[in-house]
């Protein structure tokens, strides 16, 4: 019974007007949550947490770098789950959501790489090091770009989305392999390994802002995902009647 209701609810989500409405209702809340959490997180990160005895203030970039890195990976997992749903049940709105997730994930990956590089300069004296984590992130960025490029290369966007969904799942198998092989590779080439966080443990006082920022970033991912999906849906369906009804309702 419950399962049946879930199923019905699930299929109603697949209907573009319902999905559109849901996105429109949810997205402002997510964005508001993001602003609130970021405000708390940044305040704590910049004013409450004391400077590091070794790195001074430069370590504070961690509060963007680490949540971005987490979200780059979590975003891929979310995208892969959506892709699996899209391929198995052939739900168009989920296909659109999967494709909307890719640029957001790519942006977080790029942010992680950029902040890592900025952090690397004072820390290691170079903008780039072939560190296992950074290298995996770079490959992840290319996986994201490949998915976006593939989707964009098709004229029939529905077909492009479905083909790109296959690539998303392929990447899901591939990413752990890349991660493992790159770890292996850096341990082999001992000379160039630099441990970003060192052996030092994080002081407990440094933790709360990190958690706030991680939550903020997740909310932002959700908000951006829903907004992008809604825009893509409206763009694809712009000649359909339901859009006219919705726009008419808003106007």
């Amino acid at each position: 019974m419950i399962f049946h209701r879930l199923k019905v609810g699930f299929h109603r989500l697949g209907s573009p007007p319902t999905f559109h409405k849901l996105c429109r209702i949810l997205s402002p809340w997510l964005w508001a949550g993001f602003v609130a959490c970021t405000a708390i997180g940044l305040y704590q990160a910049l004013y409450v947490v004391p400077p590091d005895y070794q790195q001074g203030d430069s370590f504070r970039i961690l509060y963007i770098h680490v949540p971005a890195a987490w979200q780059a990976m979590a975003g891929y997992v979310i995208m892969a789950i959506l892709a699996a749903i899209a391929l198995v049940w052939r739900i168009r709105t989920v296909e659109i959501m999967t494709m909307a997730a890719a640029p957001v994930g790519a942006a977080f990956t790029a942010l992680c790489l950029a902040t890592g590089s900025l952090w690397g300069k004072p820390m290691w004296g170079t903008w780039w090091a072939w560190d296992a984590r950074l290298t995996s992130m770079l490959v992840l960025l290319f996986i994201y770009l490949g998915i976006m490029g593939l989707y964009a290369a098709f004229e029939d966007r529905r077909k492009g989305a479905r083909v790109a969904c296959i690539l998303v799942l392929v990447g899901l198998v591939n990413i752990p392999l890349i991660h493992f092989s790159v770890e292996w590779w850096t341990t082999l080439h001992q000379g160039s390994t630099i441990n970003l966080f060192g052996e030092s443990k994080m002081h407990p006082s440094m933790l709360p802002p990190l958690i706030w920022m991680a939550i903020a970033v997740k909310l932002m991912f959700g908000g951006a995902l829903l907004d992008r999906s809604r825009n893509d849906l409206v763009d694809q369906d712009r000649r359909k009647r339901w859009i006219r009804d919705v726009i008419g309702e808003e106007a």
Partner: peptide
């Protein structure tokens, strides 16, 4: 199914052959 596959092709292959 795309018109110009070759650039895309190398972007797709590269992550897959890293391991």
């Amino acid at each position: 199914g795309t018109n110009r596959g070759s650039v895309l092709l190398s972007i797709l292959v590269f992550p897959m052959v890293v391991p």
